[in-house]
Amino acid sequence: MSIGKKRAITAWCFISVPIIYFILVRFYPTLDAFSISLTDWNIVGKKTYIGFDNFIRLWHDPVFWQVLGNTFEYLLLGVPISLILSFIIAHSLDQVRFGHGFLRACYFIPFLTTAVAMAWVWRWFYQPVPVGMINLVLGQLGIKQLDFLRSTTEALPAVLAPAIWAGLGFQIVIFMAGLRAIPQSYYEAAKIDGAGAFRILREITLPQLRPTIVFLTVISSIGFLRIFDQVYNMTQEGEGGPLNATRPLVLHIYKAAFERFEMGMAAAQTVVLFVILLFITIFQLKVLKND
């Protein structure tokens, strides 16, 4: 037996149990969800096969398009803002020695909290005067108060902020682990060449961080496209209001499944979400890998 073949057998041995697990616990339920999307099912009664009716109804539903638009807004705002912020913070933290552990802990601790409790605090910060902290500060600075959650345009960013806030610590830690994995010798060589800080960043740090950046881009895109907790906990009665301004796709799915018991409809939206996510992920892996 060739070495290659032997190693391939080893590889399949290693991943056989996980593959069975993934098939049973992930793929099978996923396919199940897909098959439900072609039916009319209220969770309890019989499933009636209705072909692509659910998808056709979605296509003609203006609220669905608004929800889809919101979902992309979360993605397009959330991913760049959080990645740039976390890279800058991780990079700066990496060069700081005084109080390093303390600072890093401060940035990470929000990640330890539960969305339910923190959403309440954020909701409180966003209130108008006399109780909202942010508006009180704005008032002190002589700036007109913002409506935040009670505005159709400001509500989405207001809900996004705590999502970025809570996930930042995660991204920073991953970036720092990536930064630390870059061999010191590369920097020393660059120093000897007399390269400036910006050139080191562009020619060593960023290229070396490529696997980390790929990972974070993919993971945070998936995260923002699947945003739910913050919206559910920060808008009145978890409705994603006002006037659907903050409602993302997963909340829409949740409402269809567990409030209206329209499982077929919920499953159809899941298929849409799945296709979007798969497309974006493969696209990102392709673009970011081959340069």
């Binding site: 009670r150 505005s151 159709t152 009145q236 009665e237 409705e239 209001g241 006002p242 006037l243 409402k255 409030e259 209206r260």
Partner: peptide
């Protein structure tokens, strides 16, 4: 939940929009 939403949105359209 849905019928409540129609009232919530009805007022929001006047107040916000």
């Amino acid at each position: 939940a849905e019928q409540r939403r129609t009232v919530v949105d009805m007022l929001d359209r006047v107040v916000l929009s």
